[in-house]
Design a protein around this nucleic acid. Structure first.
Lengths: 231, 231
DNA sequence: ACCTGAACACCGTTCAAGT
DNA sequence: ACCTGAACACCGTTCAAGT
């Protein structure tokens, strides 16, 4: 512990701790121990645990946008190259990956509103790309929220498994398939018949499917109209 | 407290407590107090807090299926009437509503695998309807997982707001819009331009849009093929 | 200015003891 | 059989005291 405690080193320690032991084991006292400092010293730099985790979330968001610089400049970043659909796809995949890597991030996004620069930038890029694809104004907003909902849900579902070893993971999926397979075929005919094909591909693959279907649906509405039933 | 403690009355007390004070205020000691019983008495009926919340989740799942009886019988329940798309739409809307009403349910679904009868029944119905729509086997499984991911994400995002009063809710959305509106228009041109149209409609409306786009995409693949990029 | 450490008001859970 | 209550090993956070 050379010198005094800094915000950066606290955040770095949080990231390491959460990544190693999971979010539920993340404790102010453990953080203090990891920093070689009394647990309460952190309160000099962050209001409370929530404030601290928010900062950790922002830190993680920065990684989502790495390689995807501002959209309105000529620099050939992710946001400027290729089809709008492909850009959005890539960005959503990255956002989900970031949330899987740092469950604290998911809690942040769930908590709600824009809070940090990196979140604003992510929103800007998504809205700009949707605009390029013909979805502006309200239609763009609807599409934006739809994509975020899907990303958050997928990350929330896959996060517990992402934290386990690949072998254990496949074993868990297999046991879940078996749970369906051994059901009463009279009561659950389709589930029993489909049991072996549930949890197909990988969690990443399942998300890619969902995202591509969502983008199919969004792209089909490039006129920008929002149907009455959605209001 | 007439007579002895029963599983049902414990679960009912949990539901009431969670609904009134939120999931984060749900405590074994508080539950004991609400039941007029020592906190540790509950451990005679449930392994631990997790086991208890699981049972609460199952209880809530039952409500999702009310009016949607088993799919393989002639009874004119939700699952048998109308277009497969409309049935799935309705079921997903109900599932999300149940998760919004009882955040503990969302935590349950997130935790992962099938655990109770009512979840099996829900899966059965969704898979059967997708089958009716031409998506069977692996394609049906992909579509099923896609729908669940969206429902969970939407519920997770909207749950905090759903718990607040309508007035406060609209005020919160307005302040979030303003947060985008006052950004630097040079760095975030699209976000600033779209600010007033973010968070359009209601949370329910935004979910309906997302769900309809997802179903558009799924319905577009009724051939059942899963594209190579999704594997 | 920054950190310590005792203290407070809580947790979930176990287990011997009561009835 | 079922519930009690003390106890244990933890929490997040506050605040006077040290340096």
């Amino acid at each position: 512990m050379a010198g005094t405690l800094r915000r950066d080193s606290i955040i770095a320690a949080c990231v390491e701790l959460i990544e190693r032991e999971g979010i539920e084991a993340f404790t102010m006292r453990r953080l203090g121990a990891a920093l070689g400092v009394d647990a309460t010293a952190v309160y000099r730099h962050f209001r409370d645990k929530d404030d601290l985790l928010r900062a950790v979330g922002d830190h993680a968001h920065a990684l989502v946008l790495t390689g995807a610089p501002a959209v309105d400049h000529g620099a050939p970043g992710l946001a400027d190259s290729g089809e709008w659909r492909a850009v959005i796809r890539e960005l959503c995949i990255r956002l989900r990956a970031a949330q899987l890597a740092r469950p604290a991030l998911a809690a942040l996004v769930r908590a709600g509103p824009p809070l940090h620069d990196h979140e604003f930038e992510l929103t800007e890029t998504l809205l700009a790309q949707l605009h390029r694809g013909g979805l502006s104004g309200e239609a763009g907003a609807f599409a934006y929220h739809a994509l975020i909902e899907l990303v958050v849900g997928s990350a929330a579902i896959d996060a517990p498994m992402a934290a386990t070893a690949p072998d254990d993971r496949e074993a868990a999926y297999a046991s879940w398939r078996r749970a369906y397979a051994v059901l009463d075929a009279r009561r659950y005919p389709t589930a029993v018949a489909t049991a072996g094909q549930l949890y197909p591909s990988s969690a990443d693959g399942r998300f890619a499917y969902a995202l591509d279907r969502m983008l199919d649906g969004i792209a089909g509405l490039q006129s920008g109209a929002v149907s009455a039933s959605d209001r």
